[in-house]
């Protein structure tokens, strides 16, 4: 092992152990989760490192790899809206449509080479961003539906349609979900140097080229995340709005009069 590799392993493992110790000392209760996600990350990245060489050599394998990414993202995000029937399916649609649309546009415009090496990393970033937005939207929307059901029912009682009654919770969920994407774009270059940029520079690209590619990804992500968030909010609201301008929230008791 090279000197750099030894340093990487020793320091990163030491810092994870320190985080676990801190969580235990401060009684946060995240020790187990910190350990599990760290081990998962090691296993996943090692496995990807092994197959990525293969994936980069076959278009068919690359496409399959993108589908696996989408499946995992849909499943992860769907778990955040477990109360909603077919959560992973709704999340998959909300994540997949905007991510694949943006990917298709970028490839059609030849912004990235239509090769496995071009497709896989960009698809990963777009799907990852869409997943984060969908998860946050779903989680916040369910919180709104549970915590503010009496406000929503008040709107219904005053003669609003179910769609109108849900407009405010929907807007709150979407604006909350977009905060990370907006902040990430706002501070780019000032606080963070994002992964694509760093990777390209380390790989030998000029900083100007790296910045251009990073910007393409970052600005595309604004569309992808907003669309994923709106789509998920729309799909969830279609599930909870039932005939007769009523709203039925799964696993929720109507607040008023229940």
């Amino acid at each position: 092992m090279s000197q750099a590799a030894v340093g990487q392993v020793v320091v990163s493992v030491a810092l994870v152990l320190a985080a676990i110790a801190l969580s235990w000392r401060a009684r946060i209760g995240l020790e187990r989760e910190l350990a599990v996600v760290s081990i998962r990350a090691i296993v996943q990245l090692t496995a990807v490192g092994a197959v990525v060489t293969l994936v980069f050599q076959h278009v068919g394998l690359a496409a399959a790899f993108v589908l696996v990414m989408l499946g995992v993202a849909a499943w992860t995000s769907g778990r955040r809206i477990r109360a909603i029937p077919h959560g992973p399916l709704l999340a998959g649609a909300a994540i997949g449509l905007p991510a694949l649309l943006a990917l298709g546009l970028l490839l059609a415009a030849q912004a990235f080479p239509a090769t496995p090496r071009g497709i896989v990393p960009v698809a990963g970033i777009l799907i990852g961003g869409a997943m984060a937005a969908a998860s946050l939207t779903g989680r916040r929307l369910l919180e709104e539906l549970h915590d503010r059901l009496d406000e929503i029912e008040t709107r219904l009682l005053l003669g609003a349609s179910a769609r109108e009654a849900l407009a405010t919770p929907l807007r709150r969920a979407v604006t909350t979900a977009l905060v990370p994407a907006l902040d990430q774009t706002r501070i780019v270059g000032l606080v963070t140097l994002p992964g694509t940029f760093v990777g390209l520079v380390l790989g030998g690209a000029s900083p100007a080229t790296a910045a251009r590619i990073q910007l393409t990804v970052l600005l595309s992500l604004l569309f992808v995340e907003l669309t994923a968030s709106l789509l998920l909010a729309h799909l969830v609201s279609r599930v909870v709005i039932v005939a007769g301008e009523r709203i039925e929230v799964p696993q929720a008791q109507a607040r008023y009069g229940a």
């Binding site: 029912e153 219904l156 009682l157 039932v242 007769g244 301008e245 009523r246 109507a254 009069g257």
Partner: peptide, 8 residues
Amino acid sequence: RCAVGLDR
């Protein structure tokens, strides 16, 4: 609630 159709 039933009188105003809030419950089915």
